[in-house]
Design a protein around this nucleic acid. Structure first.
Length: 330
DNA sequence: TAAAAGGAAACCG
DNA sequence: CGGTTTCCTTTTA
């Protein structure tokens, strides 16, 4: 999890990071049940490093499902999202249930921030990734979670990966390995087995692992995948209609460093210590979520301080400005 | 000068 | 009623 790539994800300017490969080569895969073309998304993933699916939180995939445009191909230019005004009506911080204002008229032009559209784009891509993993699983008849794979499954997955990334056959080197072994491998381990393609393989596996981890984390009450459909249930943490608590909201932001590490991030995740890097922005997001346009850090911090008594959040031992700590481990 | 700390009261689902 | 939100004063770094 603490891969060196993480720093990359944190370096603020994301747009470059998400640049899709110019060549959108089409890999034709026979998907039995006439399922839609999944290929171009995968080609895009070659350059899209997702060390962990922190950028993915199910609530966003849910609302995204509604707002999505007909063309499934995620277009990487930041302008695209902001170019479509209809999208501005739905913000990630807002639950989809809020249809308060007339649907057609964008009553609240709260600023189609370009970060917002970036987020939307990211979640859009991620949604595709999840779908693609699901499709791949059906195609290959393997489970989404790499840990569960036997040696045969691993080989299938490798074949699939080679296919997607146009790699030569690398399966042999991994012949003895089952899913657990594979998941335990570091980047260096990959390098030993396949010096040339360790990066791609490891990254691709990372995506699957992250997706599986996410899946496990978000769907506590698992429906046993009846009928094979809904392999990725739209479990919903925050958009359940219940009032969101500030501490939950902060944790949500912290769980999506890909989107929000510029505003708030862990200093020590194990101890639950986090730092608000941009107090104004965090307050803005909170105000947005609670529909309190006048929210600011002064008020937000007052709310945080209310948690001191309740033992939800406290000031860390070495008190620093804008640094707080969740009392019970995350 | 921004942030921290809390009291007090209003607000709201 | 609980969980803030709003406003305010004082203290601290």
């Amino acid at each position: 999890m603490a891969s060196p790539r993480e720093s990359q994800a944190e370096s603020t300017e994301c747009p470059t990071e998400v640049t899709l490969a110019g060549s959108t080569e089409t890999i034709s895969v026979k998907a039995e049940s006439g399922s839609p073309d999944i290929t171009e998304t995968w080609s895009g993933l070659q350059v899209l490093y997702l060390p962990s699916f922190d950028i993915l939180s199910i609530d966003e995939t849910t609302w995204l499902g509604r707002v999505r445009e007909p063309s499934p191909t995620p277009t990487p230019s930041p302008e695209v999202a902001s170019a479509s005004p209809t999208r501005c009506a739905v913000e990630p911080e807002q639950c989809p249930q809020v249809h308060s204002s007339a649907l057609g008229a964008p009553a609240m032009p709260s600023g189609p921030d370009e970060e917002r559209s970036l987020e939307q784009m990211q979640t859009l891509v991620v949604e595709e990734v999840l779908k693609d993993i699901e499709t791949a699983c059906k195609l290959l008849n393997i489970t989404p979670d790499p840990v569960d794979w036997n040696t045969g499954n691993v080989q299938k997955w490798l074949l699939w990966t080679e296919h997607l990334y146009k790699l030569p056959s690398v399966g042999k080197a991994f012949q003895q390995l089952d899913g657990k072994d594979l998941c335990a491998m570091s980047q260096e381990d990959f390098h030993k087995l396949s010096p040339e393609y360790s990066g791609t393989l490891h990254a691709h596996l990372d995506i699957w692992k992250s997706a599986a981890w996410m899946h496990g984390r978000c769907s506590v009450t698992e429906r046993p995948t009846a009928g094979g459909q809904d392999a990725w249930p739209e479990a919903d943490s925050s958009c359940s209609g219940q009032p969101v608590h500030l501490w939950q909201f902060l944790r949500e932001l912290l769980l999506k460093p890909h989107n929000y590490s510029r505003y708030i991030r862990w200093l020590n995740k194990d101890k639950g210590i986090f730092k608000i890097e941009d107090s104004a922005q965090v307050a803005r997001l909170w105000g947005q979520r609670k529909n309190r346009p006048a929210m600011n850090y002064d008020k937000l911090s007052r709310s945080i301080r209310q948690y001191y008594k309740k033992g939800i959040i406290r000031k860390p031992d070495m008190s620093q400005r804008l640094v707080y700590q969740f009392v019970n481990q995350v």
